[in-house]
Design a protein around this nucleic acid. Structure first.
Lengths: 211, 211
DNA sequence: ACCTGATGTGTACACTGTTCACAATGTCAC
DNA sequence: GTGACATTGTGAACAGTGTACACATCAGGT
């Protein structure tokens, strides 16, 4: 598991940065940000420990890069959840369904990939970086932008009063994010899937009523 | 800062467990759970590194103890916020005000003591331990119990429909907790106090409408 | 063919958590 | 009292971590 694929004949690695990032993602997947360990990443890449410093200033920089990648994965999960919704009813109820989809995609990601979720969302980042390219999923949007898009739809459909649109990301995100954290390593940890699914539905109800 | 108070003449320390816990709390206050470092705690207590193992199985056990203590502090903050509310109106609006107080106490704690907040609420604990004695504040209640009490008042006053009372802790807690995490080291980190206060009020509005 | 910058290596240091054998002390039965 | 025993603290040691410094190796432009 921690052995390099092949001893590598060339002096240069080729794409060490990416290799370190990939290794970091795998470690984060199993143990969250604290499990991202620099030396182990270099070991998996089949390279000496210090080689990492040619690509990342320090361990924290690596963890941040992993965090960005993890946010991209989260964005993907949200996007697929969105794509699964077929528009049928009027614009208003469609928009509401889509907000729910975003929330449940986010929470499913938390449940299925707790390590990556924690790495994505509990590593310090500033708000002005919430739209940075490195956090984008394959669809080209960050989680923050994905949520924002759905809120725009809600506002356009008249469900969300215009004066409440600004900053609404914050509220929706807070609620859902909080449940995610509590499920992962808060007091709700280890509850069975049915209970979690139920809690998710009720939380989405709350947001739907309160937003 | 990291030197023992006095070189200690007796072989026995006297109350090493508490001394280690206190040191741990101070470290957590400045840097969160990761900053709780076992050797440093023993250093501050003026004792050899291994002495800690007579009182805590390993570092994780120490961190958990610090986490419990931090939850006690959070409970205190919530209790004082509650105490500041003077009952004036009818039972219904009183109960709603008290729920807001609990939420804003929780969030104030997050803002003023981010390190302790993270230590309190992002260290794995099971739900059945949410009422453990070690997490109690000076008023004798854990944060979970404090919230539960106010929700009982809401239900009694008829604001919260009885069929929605069960599990309501989860919803309220999730929302507020999420905002706390986002403020501390999520994308909202470093926002000014006014913005945070505004976000808090809006989030409490959401909970008030949606619970 | 050389120079230069980029990338990887080797050695080394301070620090961490943790284990093992051992020392000092309190406590309790007799 | 006086041992025996359990409790609590010590010392030396080990593996593992992040990181700095000097050095080696190479790719590409002149």
């Amino acid at each position: 598991m921690s052995t390099p694929e092949t001893p590598r004949s060339t002096y240069r690695h080729g794409d060490l940065r990416q290799a370190l990032l990939d290794a970091g993602v795998e470690m984060a997947r199993t143990g969250g940000p604290d499990a991202v360990i620099l030396r182990e990443a270099t070991r998996r890449a089949g390279v000496s420990p210090n080689a990492a410093y040619r690509h990342f200033a320090d361990r924290e920089a690596l963890v941040r890069a992993v965090s960005d990648a993890a946010q991209g994965f989260a964005a993907d999960r949200m996007a697929t959840a969105l794509a699964a919704i077929e528009a049928a009813g009027d614009a208003a109820s469609d928009a509401r369904l889509r907000l729910r989809a975003v929330g449940s995609g986010y929470l499913r990601f938390a449940q299925e990939e707790p390590g990556l979720f924690r790495t994505a969302f509990s590593v310090p980042t500033d708000l002005d970086e919430a739209t940075s390219i490195s956090k984008r999923g394959v669809a080209g949007r960050t989680p923050f932008e994905t949520l924002g898009g759905v809120l725009d739809e809600l506002a356009a459909a008249g469900v969300l009063p215009a004066e409440r649109r600004q900053g609404a990301e914050l509220l929706a995100w807070s609620s859902v994010h909080g449940l995610g954290m509590l499920i992962i390593d808060g007091p709700l940890r280890g509850l069975d899937d049915r209970t979690i699914a139920f809690a998710t539905e009720r939380l989405l109800d709350l947001v739907d009523r309160g937003i």
